[in-house]
Every structure is written in C-alpha cells, then in structure tokens.
C-alpha cells in the first residue's frame, strides 16, 4: 500500500537532516543550554548554602552574645555583691573599732575618775584626820586643862581597854 511504503528519497533526506540537526543542536543548543542551566542551578545551590551558613553563624553569634551578656551581668552582680560585702565589712569593722576605742576611753576615764576619786578621798581623809587631830588637840587642850577631867578620861580609856 502506498501509505506504508517507505520512500528512499525521504529516508535519505530525513537521515541527513536529522544527523545535521543532531550535530548542530548539540553544539549550538544542548551543550550551552544545559551547561548554563546546570551552572545556574549550582550557583543557586551555593547561594542557598551560603545563606544557610550565614544564618547559622548569625545564630551562633547571637547565642554567643547572649552568653557574654549573661556572664557580664553575673560578673556585675558579683562585683556589686562583693562591694556591698566590703562596704558592710568596713562599716562593721569601723563600728567595732569605734566601740573598742570608746570602751577604752571609757575605761581610762573611769580609771581616771577612780584615781581622782581615790585621790580626793585620800585628801579628804587626810584633811579629816588633820581636822580631827586639830579638834582632838583643841579638845585635849581644853580637857587637859582640868585635872579631874584628865583623870576621868584616863579612867574611861582604861575601862575600854579592859573590855577589849
């Protein structure tokens, strides 16, 4: 049948045209197009990977920053605490010292007062003694001017000695 009978001329030209097309398209179309597409795909992949990496780095940087911030805050707190402690210590120490000093002063003052008191007492005692002696002298003088009274006195004195 005419329809399914191959024609030699058409086979000849189809073969030639197809082979030429294959060679030409390989050189001018498939190779450059596929190379360009592959290259573009690669560059897109690279760009995506780089973006991912940058994102990860950013994240790491952020956590790092946070860590540093937390540490700094901790250090600041520690410093503040230490300062407060030092301040408290200083105050307590100063208080203690002041108290000690005050106590010392108080003691010295007491001692001094005591001394002065003792001194005053001694002086008073001496004065009283002197005065007593004077009085006694005067009394004795007046007493002894009367002989009876002397005898009476002696007798009295003897009496008390005997009792002792």
């Amino acid at each position: 049948m005419e329809l399914v009978t191959p024609e030699i001329g058409l086979i000849f030209w189809t073969t030639i045209v197809f082979l030429l097309l294959l060679i030409v398209l390989k050189k001018y179309a498939w190779k450059p197009i596929l190379a360009a597409v592959d290259e573009r795909n690669k560059s897109i992949e690279d760009a995506l990977k780089a973006a991912d990496k940058a994102k990860k780095e950013m994240l790491a940087l952020n956590t790092d920053n946070e860590r540093i911030l937390i540490q700094a805050r901790k250090e600041r707190d520690a410093l503040l605490k230490e300062g407060r402690e030092i301040k408290d210590n200083i105050i307590t120490e100063a208080k203690d010292k002041a108290k000690l000093e005050a106590d010392k002063i108080l003691i010295t003052a007491k001692e001094q007062i005591n001394n002065e008191k003792m001194k005053a007492i001694t002086e008073l005692k001496n004065q009283v003694a002197e005065m007593s002696i004077d009085i006694a002298e005067k009394i004795l003088k007046s007493e002894l001017s009367d002989k009876n009274k002397q005898k009476e006195l002696i007798a009295e004195a003897l009496k008390s000695n005997e009792l002792n």
């Binding site: 024609e7 030699i8 001329g9 058409l10 000849f12 030209w13 189809t14 045209v17 097309l21 030409v24 398209l25 001018y28 179309a29 450059p32 197009i33 360009a36 597409v37 573009r40």
Partner: peptide
C-alpha cells in the same frame, strides 16, 4: 533513485530551521 526535495523534505527543512532559530535564541539568552 529519487532524492528530490519533496513536500515533506521541504517542510522538514523549514521546521528544522525554525527549531534551530528558537533554540539558538534560547541558548543566546543564557
């Protein structure tokens, strides 16, 4: 041996030329 440029051969040549120009333009685009 009839190796004439028949209607089919001529049509094929035109098609192939159009195809080549289209793909050449595509490839130049890159």
């Amino acid at each position: 041996f009839d190796i004439s440029i028949t209607k089919n051969v001529a049509s094929m040549l035109i098609s192939v030329l159009i195809l080549f120009l289209l793909l050449r333009a595509t490839s130049a685009g890159y």
